[in-house]
């Protein structure tokens, strides 16, 4: 070994520089980020999106396994009596719980307190499944403070009953849909972050500090090649349009460069018939060449297809 000693000072300064840099860029911002209370937006989002939308052991290939659903209830799942329309988030047994339930300290002090005391989220269990509600408590100044309520504990609702009471047409597979959004790389073109500049006039309000607690991944996107879709469900809530657009975007927007996502329909349609993609494409080409007046009919997706989940997700982006 040759004189390594002469670099002692350099090595120490190097450690100091890198350590200092990490203190400023990681440790210090962590104080700001920890103190943020989850907003209504963040609570809603983490409840419908579930624990993780990217790779996880519960759903390694992002095919929609072990995922919660959002349902709209019109009847009470216990009594069957009609009730005011209520949104519930159903976690069937074995589904990983949302981040705020697993780690309530990520909700921020106020929300954590309420969710624990009034919402009884501490009693939720992954192995038995749970049903959550987004509840609120009026504040002195007239505003509302939102928190997570574990309806399995407070109302005795269990996942199967709630799903049955809601029925398929009132069920949104938005969590499964977000996994597809991540898997199919929609976010390489569509951002989920209206900028704090002119964007709000076209794409809606930019998100606020507490709007992300518990969301993973946030998938903001950095190279926008298409409209921001954080609030797309408020601009366009037509399932029909979404269906045509995903099957072949050029059916509704001739100049679009978006890829066709017809493969998300899977092999069969809603009636269990095989979808003949080759025939469809041939007929579509004839339409493009002017040999047909109308484009071929888009097959209706099956209710358990990727396409359905993706549309559920997009329509949940309010």
């Amino acid at each position: 070994m040759v004189n390594f000693r002469e670099y002692k000072i350099g090595a120490r300064f190097f450690g100091l520089a890198l350590g200092g840099s990490m203190t400023i860029t990681l440790f210090m911002p962590s104080f700001d980020l920890r103190n943020v209370n989850a907003t209504e937006v963040a609570l809603d989002k983490q409840l419908w999106a579930g624990h993780e939308s990217g790779f996880s052991l519960a759903d390694p290939f992002l095919t929609g396994e072990h995922r919660p659903v959002r349902v709209t209830l019109k009847t009470d799942p216990k009594t069957g009596q009609p009730m005011a329309s209520t949104v519930a988030y159903v976690y069937p047994a074995g589904t990983p719980l949302p981040n705020g339930v697993d780690h309530p300290d990520n909700l921020g002090n106020i929300v954590e307190q309420l969710s624990r005391d009034k919402g009884r989220i501490g009693e939720a269990s992954k192995s038995q499944g749970a049903v959550f509600l987004l509840s609120s408590e009026p504040q002195g100044d007239g505003s509302k403070q939102f928190y997570i309520e574990n309806a399995s504990a407070t109302k005795g609702w269990n996942p199967e009953e709630v799903m049955k009471a809601a029925g398929d047409e009132n069920t949104y597979h938005a969590s499964y849909g977000k996994a597809i959004f991540v898997r199919e790389g929609c976010w390489w073109c569509h951002t989920l972050l209206p900028e704090e500049t002119q964007d709000w006039q076209v794409f809606g309000a930019p998100p606020m500090l507490g709007d992300f607690n518990g969301e993973s991944p946030t998938a903001f996107g950095s190279d926008r090649k298409a409209p921001d879709i954080l609030h797309v469900g408020s601009r366009n809530s037509s399932r029909e349009w979404m269906m045509l657009h995903f099957f072949n975007p050029r059916l509704v927007q001739p100049h679009s460069i978006m890829p066709r996502f017809d493969y998300l329909w899977g092999p069969i349609d809603d009636k269990g018939q095989k979808i003949d993609f080759d025939k469809w494409r041939a007929e579509y080409n004839e339409y493009v060449d002017g040999k047909r007046v109308t484009p071929p009919e888009v097959p209706m997706y099956a209710s358990n297809s990727d396409a359905r989940a993706l549309i559920d997700f997009v329509l949940s982006l309010k």
Binding site: T25, L26, P29, S30, L33, V36, A42, Q46, H51, E52, N99, N106, L209, F212, N213, G214, E215, S216, P217, T218, F220
Partner: peptide
């Protein structure tokens, strides 16, 4: 964020870090 499932803005920021 992936080792410890950090979420929200922390995840977004660490992604870019």
């Amino acid at each position: 964020p992936e080792w410890f499932h950090l979420t929200g803005l922390t995840e977004a920021y660490l992604t870019w870090w």
